[in-house]
Design a protein around this nucleic acid. Structure first.
Lengths: 155, 155
DNA sequence: ACCGAATGTGAATATTAATTCAATTTTTTG
DNA sequence: CAAAAAATTGAATTAATATTCACATTCGGT
């Protein structure tokens, strides 16, 4: 459903920019943005999105996005410009970047989608990534595309 | 109290090696190891330790340690051997390492204690870290010592 | 367009987790 | 060492969150 997608985006936006400590509060913030749903649905949404409830530095509980959903525009632009090719072979993915950019892109991959690509090694302009057992190449591609805009639509 | 310290260690050990999905289960595992406590106390322990409850890849809920409490023996040995000096100045900490090791140690610091050292820059053998406002040098030292064995006892 | 399967949802409920309150122990300080 | 302050804890409670069940909607494949 279309609404669910938008709602996920809204949840992501809200908890990455606000301090939310319980689902009731989040429900309220969603309502302000025009999303009407119950706590039951929200609980399910958060589970699907793998949002964690964690004690904060401040001592209170807050909801946190998993690394895979974290995002930052500037970074995306940077990453987008550094990637040149992507290929799959068996449970490996091979990425090529502009010279010198491999390790920083590898770093981002390690940070963002550790449950999809379980490890990487980076040279100067090449990254070899090992794909988690059982995942399809498409799933990996999509996970990468989630934070590398130039990949969107491609493949 | 002595028991609490040991209990924290036990909790850390249990949830880093087991899949625990609720406090009752964890209580049970603690009981097996000789720790007798109630759910109320456990809830407080987890809050203090900043243990997050997060949806797992598998779809179930699991408790996860914050990065600052994660650990790995091999890594520790590696880190221990790479660090040579540590000094403080105002809200900065300066670490020296064997040549070439600065960025990997800086990476670990960024990963493990982001709420203590809010940022680092690393050269070839030097790391400059910026300490979070309000923290004492001792607190920072202890946070570093928590994953760099050679620091334990020192200072 | 129709059917069956899969997905999405709310109301109610069950489960899980956090906190209050009171009592106790430990630590600090004069 | 005594008194005060701080920390620790359990029982009971409240609060928060997950799930069950029933129904509705959407999707995929004829």
């Amino acid at each position: 459903m279309k609404n669910k997608i938008k709602r996920f985006a809204a949840i992501k936006e809200i908890i990455s920019t606000n301090t939310v400590s319980c689902q009731e509060d989040l429900l309220q913030l969603l309502a302000e943005r025009g999303f009407q749903l119950t706590q039951a649905t929200l609980s399910r949404d958060l589970k699907q999105m793998k949002v964690a409830k964690t004690p904060d530095v401040s001592g209170e509980y807050i909801y946190k996005l998993p690394n895979e959903l974290k995002n930052s525009e500037e970074h995306n632009i940077y990453l987008a410009s550094s990637l040149t090719t992507i290929d799959f072979s068996g449970n490996n993915v091979v990425l090529h970047t502009r010279s010198g950019y491999a390790s920083s892109l590898a770093y981002e991959i390690d940070e963002r989608i550790p449950s999809v690509i379980i490890g990487t090694v980076a040279g100067e302009d090449t990254i070899i990534g090992v794909i988690k057992e059982g995942l399809s190449q498409k799933e990996v591609f999509d996970a990468l595309a989630s934070f590398i805009p130039t990949l969107k639509g491609r493949q």
